[in-house]
Amino acid sequence: MDMQAYLLLGSDIRGNIEAASYYFSRDADSKIAADNLMLTQGWRRFNWAQPMRKIASAPKFPPEFDGHLVGATVTYAKGQQPVTGAKAYLSVPGTKTQFYASMTDEEGKAYFDIRDYYGKNELVVQTEALSDSNYRIDIADPFSDRYSAKPILPFNIDRGQAKTILDHSVAVQTINAYMNDSLTRFDLPLLDSNPFYGRYTKRYLLDDYIRFSTMEEVLREYVPEVGLKRTAGQLRLRISDWDQLKYLEGEPLLLLDGVPVTHKQILGYDPIKVKKLEVVTNRYISGKFVFDGIASFSSYAGNMPEFVFDPKTVILDYEGLQVEREFYAPVYETESQKSSRLPDFRNLLTWQPDLHTDAAGKTKANFYTSDKAGKYVGIIHGIDASGNAATEVFNIQVIK
């Protein structure tokens, strides 16, 4: 498929289009043929009603500029009525502290812009502990429930191609037998290992100190940045502001492996299972959320061992962005590589999706052919910064 023909024609036309690139050729009749094609699709006039609307309609799926958007809906457990203005938190438990906060809209929907989230991981979603506990949280499916209306063409096999199909089948089986380990390699992206709050004020590695049996003793003995104050008969943590030489009066953000926890939960947790504590003594602001300091506790494996969650907390496996899979192609540069007796029956010689041209519009693509001789078809698709697309098709002959 020609890239220009697909972007400007095939993506919006119903049914199958034979020789779509013809409508963009320099043939004298191509423009007339394009007009006739539009007429068969019912495009006789332009509908000005939608673009002239003063209120623009919101897209069904908002664009994801920075990361993957996770949607959640907060409703009352009994009446299923949406909750407006509820504070919702999403965390990805692990050694890297990933915490996101959002507030529900009039429809009870909250969106979390998760960055650097790849593969299948465990998500923890909950509302603010001070809010009504009679909330129900539902996570939106990351996959679309809308499908293309274009019919799938029937799959017909030409019996005259039986030998070709058999050769391809043998080639695939050979590749899987001798190159299977190389076919399952993934290019892991470079991720920022810093927590969301950036630089901490003070870090405590608990193994460097005397181990105590309760978290209260740990905080009282050697963590002066975190004070304990009894309010209404319950101990609560307060973060100190060393610049003003006083404790911050607001509610701090307490985390265990990136998951928000209550004062009671963290004070009742076994400190032997905690590896480190990072304290931020400044006020942390994220959108509409304001936290008077942060106390981030981390376990050894980042899995919150033996932690008891609130029954209303939603814990689920969630599919994030897929890790880029490396296209494997053998290299025959050294003598040992050239003399290798491993069969190379590849019929797809190369796939390079990240080529960039220089100022003169030129670039190079290097690859090695396989052991299968014959005629190969090469296809080059390109698009520039202005959206202009082009396609070039060429042939190469591989001989023994």
Rank of each mutant, 00 (worst) to 15 (best):
A49G: 02
F394M: 10
V393P: 00
R211W: 01
P62R: 14
F289D: 01
R14P: 00
S25P: 00
A373P: 00
A86N: 00
R136C: 04
P93N: 02
L237W: 08
L348N: 02
T164F: 03
V377D: 01
I285P: 00
D257G: 04
P93K: 02
L190D: 11
E324M: 14
P260D: 12
A72K: 14
G268A: 11
K338V: 13
F112K: 07
L277S: 09
Y178F: 14
L267N: 08
I137E: 01
G67L: 02
N347H: 06
V279M: 04
D208A: 12
P62A: 09
G293K: 07
Y111E: 05
G361H: 01
Y318E: 01
T40F: 08
S296D: 15
L256Q: 11
A389H: 13
M3C: 09
V280K: 11
V223D: 03
G67H: 02
P59C: 03
T73E: 03
A34I: 04
L349T: 04
D132Y: 01
V261R: 10
Y222K: 10
Y209N: 04
K87R: 08
Y204D: 07
D344P: 07
N303G: 06
K276F: 09
P151Y: 05
I152L: 14
S340G: 06
R115C: 04
